[in-house]
Design a protein around this nucleic acid. Structure first.
Lengths: 260, 260
DNA sequence: TTTTGCTGGTTCATTTATTGAACCGTCTTT
DNA sequence: AAAGACGGTTCAATAAATGAACCAGCAAAA
């Protein structure tokens, strides 16, 4: 792993639970040398990706991420398009609805709405990078994305999250095959205990998965009826979103997904 | 400049005008070796900061900036607070209103609204990093921010943007002094020809400038009356915003700024 | 009050990763 | 057909990165 990747990896430690992180905390989180860590933090700060809280000296995400996010949305307005579809689904089904996009080592959150009105809800963290092989979103992306993404996953070890996490590449391949056969991914309790989800891809102009739409519920609420409703609404929404983005649903899915 | 900083510097080349950039274009923009540039782009892509357009192979900003921006706003909800004040000022004064935050080498855009309803407007680019010494926002930040920021600017060369750009550190010091005396910065036509602006800081709990609010107009529309109105509304809005953020306006400004 | 332990931060001899000139395959232009 | 441009790769030489040891300041424990 290059110096650049090691430094940027520090940014992945921030979340709602850890808004600020000190130098020594970073050392503990990463097992990097403190001097090395300090140099990475200083470089990230110099470029605006981090800033220091003046009173605690702890580091937090800086203005560069706001600026670059605005540039990205201005130039590739994906979140603003996705948002309206996610808002609508969340208002209708009253569960956690989220959109994610692939990056090299997992699915990166784009937009999420917790439409839940129940006492029990699926916890959500926008910092999360969902592993490809252990989540519905990830498996949906692998099933309908470039073959090279599957090859990359097959070349790596599989970290275990719950007792249902796929433990070998054959199991992952089986999930991918299943997803291709039925037009959606549903990998229950594989990444988080007691959480069930369904995900579908949405598509680019080259009919490759550009990202995914997913709905997650506590296991108790994912009845057969609920699952059918979710599948129907996700496949419909994906077709509308793909069309909005000027993308193209691959023909093998047009045969499986009910038309809108 | 470290390898990390050189790599991250590539991200600053994206804007509305350049949504995608190819490897060879990056080489021309940066004068880095093509092999070196490719390695930087690959590392940034691996971490989700860049993605490649499948059809053109050109690079564009990736999903990591969206995710980290969401994390940053969740943990330090500055943009969402600032946005309502900027929206209100833009609707009222019908000019370009923007908020920016400091990073090491300039002011980074947080949020902007072009409230203009005239044929002539100030062009705006959210990718922009405003140099401290040549913009109203930058000078306002230097005047009311940590002394170390002024020292850093004084230790560097001053690039010229227009014929009004301050050409030596004495001139910058004079602008800072003037800003401290009157409670706002107004550095006209120094960064862009024919553009006038006024900026004020807003404050953190330690009474240090956390960022700035600014209004920019074409020179022809910045009449004496307009300037007075802008100054009044900016100082009032900064006090309200600082209060919303739980910050503290320094006492020397409370003597200058009219109370709300 | 003194000692210990923790924080953020710095230094520089040693080590490792980075660098960039030269090269490659593919596609477009002349 | 040849030249030129693109994205991308290789590896000997080079420069940057590394991390153990150290620092000052502050808080906690003895």
């Amino acid at each position: 792993m290059s110096t650049i990747e090691r430094a940027l990896g520090l940014l992945e430690h921030f979340s709602s639970q850890t808004p600020e992180i000190g130098l020594s905390d970073f050392k503990r989180l990463t097992d990097f040398d403190k001097g090395t860590t300090h140099r990475y933090l200083t470089a990230l700060k110099e470029c605006g990706f981090l800033e220091q809280n003046p009173s605690t000296k702890a580091y937090r995400l800086g203005p560069a991420v706001i600026r670059l996010s605005a540039v990205r949305e201005k130039t590739v307005p994906l979140v603003q398009t996705v948002a309206q579809y996610v808002d609508e689904l969340a208002a209708e089904l009253h569960e956690l609805v989220h959109a994610a996009a692939p990056q090299a080592r997992g699915m990166s959150m784009l937009y999420a709405v917790d439409g839940g009105n129940s006492a029990t809800r699926v916890a959500f963290d926008e910092a999360e990078i969902l592993p490809f092989y252990a989540t519905s979103s990830g498996i949906a992306q692998l099933a309908y994305g470039p073959a090279t993404m599957v090859e990359e996953v097959m070349g790596k070890g599989l970290e275990r999250f719950t007792r249902h996490t796929p433990q070998n590449h054959e199991a992952v391949d089986e999930l991918i095959g299943q997803t291709r056969a039925r037009g959606y991914a549903s990998v229950d309790e594989s990444y988080e205990a007691d959480v069930c989800s369904v995900a579908v891809p949405f598509f680019d102009t080259d009919a490759m998965a550009r990202g995914t739409l997913a709905i997650a519920t506590p296991a108790a609420r994912m009845t057969e009826d609920m699952r059918r409703t979710i599948i129907t609404r996700l496949t419909q929404t994906s077709q509308a979103l793909t069309k909005s983005l000027g993308g193209r649903v691959p023909s093998q899915l047009l045969d499986i997904w009910p038309p809108v």
